[in-house]
Computed example of a mutant assay.
Amino acid sequence: MERKVKYDYAFKLECVELVLKKHYTDGYVSKLKQIPRWNIRKWVSFYKTYGEIGLLPRMNQSYSSEFKLKVVTAIEKESLSLLRASVRFNIPDISIVLKWKKDFANFGIKGLEPKQKGRPISMSDKRKKSKPNKPLTREEELLKENERLRCENELLKKLQALIQARRNPKP
């Protein structure tokens, strides 16, 4: 399954060429193409560093906690901007780097470790416990059957009331 891409490769290349070959400013191209200025800056930076490959869409990647730590420490030591760090380490979006930076600031090295994906399993334990292992006594069986018959009786009464209401609607 392919990831949906907002701007295709040809569009990105066209914008980059307007900036680099025709010497338009990123602000002018952003107004011309009606896209945010930072997108053009990012594309130009990736193009300058990695060539045309830098503009290709990338599938979701998972990064090791060591790599994340390397990026965060480089930002701190060298005072890199988020854009510079994402270009230098070939990370597709600055929001990823920003999240790592916040996680490291809040939780330390534990915040950079991979997190469990998906929804947590919570209902399975409750369902398993509901079945008793020992057999029911005769009295318990009769009480259960009595309760089941009461519920069935109530259901039939409500059904009959609905049928009557449909046959004789009030004006």
Rank of each mutant, 00 (worst) to 15 (best):
D26I: 13
R148Y: 09
V44G: 03
E76I: 10
K99N: 13
K115Y: 07
E52F: 00
I121F: 06
Q164W: 11
K22V: 11
F46R: 01
S30I: 06
Q160A: 15
R41C: 08
R88N: 06
S122R: 14
E145R: 12
L155Q: 07
F107T: 01
A85E: 02
K170I: 14
S65Q: 07
L136D: 12
M123Y: 08
R150D: 13
L80S: 02
K128T: 15
I53S: 09
L56W: 05
L149N: 13
Q160S: 14
V29T: 09
I91V: 15
P171M: 06
T49C: 03
F89M: 01
D26C: 09
K22I: 07
R148L: 14
F67P: 02
Y47R: 02
D26H: 03
I94W: 00
K117Y: 12
Q34W: 06
T25F: 07
A105P: 00
K134L: 15
K117D: 11
L82S: 03
K42T: 12
S45N: 04
R119C: 08
G111Q: 04
L32A: 10
I96P: 00
I53L: 06
K99T: 15
E141A: 10
P57R: 01
A74C: 05
K157D: 10
L149T: 13
K21F: 13
S65G: 00
S124T: 10
Y9V: 06
N90T: 00
P36R: 10
E14R: 09
I94Q: 09
A105T: 10
E113M: 08
N168R: 09
I75Y: 00
D8M: 00
K126M: 07
K115I: 11
P92F: 03
P114Q: 12
P57H: 04
I96N: 00
I53A: 13
P135T: 11
G51S: 04
I91G: 02
